[in-house]
Design a protein around this nucleic acid. Structure first.
Lengths: 355, 355
DNA sequence: TTGTACGCGTTATCAA
DNA sequence: TTGATAACGCGTACAA
């Protein structure tokens, strides 16, 4: 004798309780297993029963509880996403790419953002793990914590795919753009148009793209046999203010030691640098040429449109999501470093003839 | 006699199984309840046992399974977010506002985007419900489906708070900007500076902001006793191309029936309109003045900087999240329509003296 | 302070 | 084709 299993009493103050498979089953005088089989489109169930189950499920408003399902199946159909920033146009675009892939594969996204903070990133990662996400897509924060956490999570069986900002040598796949190559090419572009004294506003050296872009810059100098000048390379950051400050530091050099061109780590930094340059009444590109990186939506609209490198953010997100799903579904454990090609956008700020 | 409860066998090919409270308990020769109590910071547990539990939990790498927890507590600590678009700068900002609030309250976000598609929105809503989210924040898609789904979900006990785009008379709270008021004020601003023949590129009338902004436009004309001219109001959309097409339609009118000023439903539409205007060699603002709505990041950088209305997206997201959490946590069931104030940004495109 | 029994809603397994 | 039973990992309610 089952006493008050919830029964037909349903007066929680206007809020109707959720319907379970048991209620559907009881109403039809069958077992929950049959209901389960119908809801999951199993083959071995009588057509007539299937019809009846579907009908009463509809009628009662039954829909399977994903939480209970996840508990028993050990699968949440959910992917955790960790981004360092959400306003910067790169990430919304990348997320859209991720979303497009996961949507068609019927996975959901738990979005977290670390605000460039290592502690917050750690927290996000830990909770995602506790929520039993099937996998994680992450673009790491600037101040990297220890790699141990990533390793730990991977060891727990949660696949991780890095995107945009990678952590090397950790046994995880990564989708990024050809940072070093792109930085090298844009620098060579300047060198090939006669500039030799070139400055670089670099990103933080703790972050992979900060390092690789600097490497590309150096590489370009080397291939063209131009000496590397210490004082012309300033470690800035990714924000406008960082570029502004770094540029001012360079502009404080004596006139004859100032650069004729500048390679900024990204467009916001370039915008800051432009501000610093214009404030001193220096003309762009006649006196100082400048190039950025990212093709920010504003780059084209600057008084002197900015030459830059377009990053296919959507593509990066898409590829990362695809790689992760391949891990989850297929179990294809090939670790790859996928590189997505960039595109040079030549505008007026570099003072080179435009194509 | 428990046979093979998992025991100490742990060789799933390099992937270590997840640790449960039972394993922690067994190792210490206590019950899982005590472990549970410790993990939830209950008072009634001996200091010494607490210490030991914490220690071995740490050592074994135990962390409570949120899925199992959710199942028994009927609470997921997760909020579903549905946005129609993710690239448009308004939403990333709003999401950041939401994130800020939910992060401190220790809630997680499941992000879905409807891509302005009613079917996809329905799908998202249904899955969020199945995932047992504690509440939903939604900005509805353009082609609204039936309100019944919203009602159904609310009846199921999942609180919904609408933001930016609302659905009236459904018994749910809503956070938006004072759309009508703002549209009225920016139109009056034009009227007060001598423009009388003013066009409006409206949003889709199916969407609330499309309607309210048109209403504000009409209201302004009324208060200033300026006649409403049918042919100067064209239903466009929210994208640049929509504005471009709508503006061209207006510019095809005979010279003497053309407007002296244009109120666009948002900045992208204004950008499109500007393109159409400039293509015909018409000068802004000397021959046609134009104002937008949203303060897109590009507005300031246009050849003729765009006068517009700044929407506090971050604030909208924040308030919406706060309202939803109030529902979830406090159970405060006061339905409110919260209105966040906008700010007029007067630039050159309206041809009015700037403050 | 600690432990036992049971239930949360579902599915896998094996038997009917 | 269908059903009974036992998990999944945890917390509530009660008893010790």
């Amino acid at each position: 004798m089952k006493k008050s299993t919830g029964g037909s009493k349903r007066s929680t103050g206007g809020v109707s309780r959720r319907v379970t498979s048991r209620e559907v089953a009881e109403k039809l005088g069958i077992s929950t297993m049959t209901v389960s089989r119908v809801m999951n489109d199993r083959a071995n169930v009588d057509e007539e029963t299937r019809r009846k189950v579907l009908e009463t499920a509809q009628q009662l408003g039954y829909s399977p509880d994903h939480i209970a399902k996840s508990l028993v199946l050990r699968k949440t159909h959910t992917i955790g996403v960790v981004v360092p920033e959400i306003t910067h146009s790169f990430f919304p675009e990348a997320i859209r790419g991720i979303e497009e892939v996961t949507y068609t594969a019927r996975y959901h996204l738990i979005l977290t953002h670390s605000a460039e903070d290592a502690e917050r990133e750690k927290d996000a990662l830990l909770t995602l793990e506790s929520k039993r996400v099937d996998g994680i897509l992450i673009s790491t924060a600037q101040r990297v914590g220890d790699d141990d956490l990533y390793k730990h999570i991977i060891r727990l069986g949660v696949p991780i795919v890095f995107f945009d900002r990678c952590v090397p040598g950790i046994g995880a796949s990564c989708v990024s753009i050809d940072d070093e190559e792109s930085a090298r090419r844009i620098t060579e572009h300047l060198l090939d148009h006669g500039y030799t004294r070139i400055a670089h506003l670099s990103g933080p050296q703790k972050v992979s793209i900060g390092r690789t872009r600097l490497d590309g810059f150096k590489m370009a100098l080397k291939t063209r046999n131009v000496p590397y000048v210490e004082e012309l390379v300033v470690e800035a950051g990714f924000q406008e203010l960082d570029g502004y400050n770094a540029m001012n530091q360079i502009l404080n050099l004596p006139k004859e030691r100032q650069p004729r061109a500048v390679v900024a780590v990204n467009d916001p930094a370039a915008f800051g640098a432009i501000k610093a340059i214009l404030e001193r009444g220096i003309r762009i590109p006649e006196e100082i040429a400048i190039v950025g990186f990212s093709d920010d939506i504003r780059a084209e609209l600057m008084p002197t449109p900015l030459t830059t490198v377009r990053q296919p953010a959507y593509e990066v997100g898409k590829r990362a999501a695809q790689k992760l799903l391949a891990f989850i579904e297929g179990g294809s454990p090939t670790i790859e470093e996928i590189v997505v090609n960039t595109e040079q956008i030549i505008r007026r700020s570099c003072g080179c003839p435009q194509v």
